[in-house]
């Protein structure tokens, strides 16, 4: 029985690997992301960006804020893409401080809060406060490109499916609209 379970687990991992899907959650170490874990669980998941914003201002960098979920296949796909192409992409991330918000699919819009300084807003309200059109629907994964004042550098799409090739990821980093 144990052998059968072990074989099943091995097969599952092998299939994921064959599909090019990373099994570990979060961005690859090469991106030197600031990892932000949620506070307030299980009632809510509050992600505090305060330290990241302060560091970005100090270092005169922009923020590349990535929201992923530990049980989200699309997140694994984007993370695997970034990891696979790290050598080529990491130098282009230099103007950005990468922030890795680690959530889970069970955290939906009403329970996800973004905190900056003394202000903590639920997802939709946070989006409206910065003029982001993605207030209607929380999609995992999500990326924000923000300046040091937490203002969007450009309107980002829901999800990451439209920038999972190297040229398209570079378009995003160059703020091409």
């Amino acid at each position: 029985m144990k052998a059968r379970a072990a074989w099943a687990a091995f097969t599952a991992v092998a299939l994921l690997a064959a599909a090019g899907v990373a099994t570990a959650a979060g961005l690859a170490p090469a991106y030197q992301a600031m990892v932000v874990e949620p506070a307030g669980l299980p009632a809510r998941a509050e992600f505090d960006l305060t330290a990241a914003v302060q560091r970005a201002r100090k270092e005169k960098r922009r923020l590349y804020v990535y929201l992923g979920a530990n049980d989200c296949p699309y997140c694994r796909k984007y993370e695997a893409f970034l990891e696979k192409n790290a050598q080529e992409l990491v130098p282009h991330f230099a103007p950005y401080l990468v922030v890795d918000l680690r959530s889970s699919l069970s955290v939906q819009a009403n329970a996800l809060f973004i905190k900056v300084g003394s202000s903590s807003l639920p997802y939709a309200e946070f989006q409206r406060s910065i003029g982001d059109e993605r207030a209607r629907l929380l999609v995992y994964p999500s990326v924000w490109l923000l300046d040091g004042n937490v203002k969007p550098l450009m309107q980002m799409p829901a999800g990451t499916g439209t920038f999972q090739t190297v040229p398209e990821q570079l378009e995003i980093l160059r703020l091409e609209q």
Partner: peptide, 10 residues
Amino acid sequence: VPLRAAYGAS
């Protein structure tokens, strides 16, 4: 038209 919009439905 933006190169990428927030949602494909809008």
